[in-house]
């Protein structure tokens, strides 16, 4: 009798000790035993995503894409009004709005893949940064777009640094950023820098650059 009791005691101690580890399997063994329990370790969170700090940074990066997408849309709309009437600029910024929107969706899907979740309300940036000027002339808008794209590229570099050098090494997150963000960023930035310098040279020191801008806009309509 006392031996049986001893064995039961030993087993239960063993079980409790076993269940307390951070493993899905242990959770399942616990949940399927008469004691029952949650299976909170049965998730896809591993590597760098175990850190809440990285998760917050990725959420912030996705929210920045959504914000930028709407900002590019407003820049595009401005050039679509009858006074501005620059279909090429309108098309260029619309393309950027579409791209940043798609990238936001990709980031949210990626978070789901890695056992993380999106929080649409989390943003690191200052609120004042959202008060942007949209009603810009051609060269200024191109300059603004270039700066915005550089910001997005640097955001990707920051995350890449977090998962390679600074925090827990995570090859999959690094590879995701490389394949889906950084190379496209370098291409867009080079394109916008080229346009900005072209416009600057075309305007030159003419008192009236309206014909140059008209022709450049026509070029943009075909080039995009």
């Amino acid at each position: 009798m006392s031996i049986k009791l001893f064995i039961i005691c030993m087993t239960s101690v063993f079980c409790v000790g076993y269940v307390s580890g951070d493993y899905c399997y242990n959770d399942v063994v616990g949940a399927c035993s008469p004691v029952g329990g949650e299976v909170q370790n049965c998730n896809a969170r591993y590597g760098a995503f175990k850190s809440d700090e990285l998760l917050a940074n990725v959420q912030n990066y996705a929210n920045t894409h959504i914000l930028r997408s709407f900002q590019f849309l407003l820049m595009s709309s401005h050039f679509g009004n009858y006074e501005k009437n620059r279909a090429g600029f309108e098309k260029l910024y619309r393309k950027m709005s579409d791209q940043t929107w798609e990238k936001a969706i990709d980031l949210v899907k990626f978070m789901g893949k890695r056992g993380a979740h999106m929080n649409f309300r989390y943003r690191k940036e200052e609120i004042k940064e959202r008060q942007m000027e949209y009603e810009l002339y051609e060269l200024a808008s191109m300059a603004k777009a270039l700066d915005m794209q550089k910001g997005l590229a640097e955001g990707a570099h920051f995350l890449h640094g977090e998962v390679t050098r600074r925090k827990e090494h995570d090859a999959e997150v690094a590879s995701f950023l490389e394949n889906n963000f950084v190379h496209q960023h370098s291409e867009i930035i080079r394109e916008l820098s080229g346009y900005t310098n072209d416009i600057k040279q075309l305007i030159g020191n003419q008192p009236d650059p309206s014909l140059s801008l008209y022709l450049f806009d026509e070029y943009l309509q075909k080039a995009i």
């Binding site: 914000l67 709407f70 849309l73 407003l74 709309s77 401005h78 679509g80 009004n81 009858y82 006074e83 649409f120 309300r121 959202r130 008060q131 942007m132 000027e133 949209y134 009603e135």
Partner: peptide, 23 residues
């Protein structure tokens, strides 16, 4: 937005058009 532009709208105060929409 495209319809408003076609009818001659949105020549000013465009920033007010999209005010940080949230789910």
């Amino acid at each position: 937005i495209g319809y408003l532009l076609m009818r001659g709208g949105l020549t000013k105060d465009i920033a007010q058009l999209i005010r940080d929409p949230q789910p």
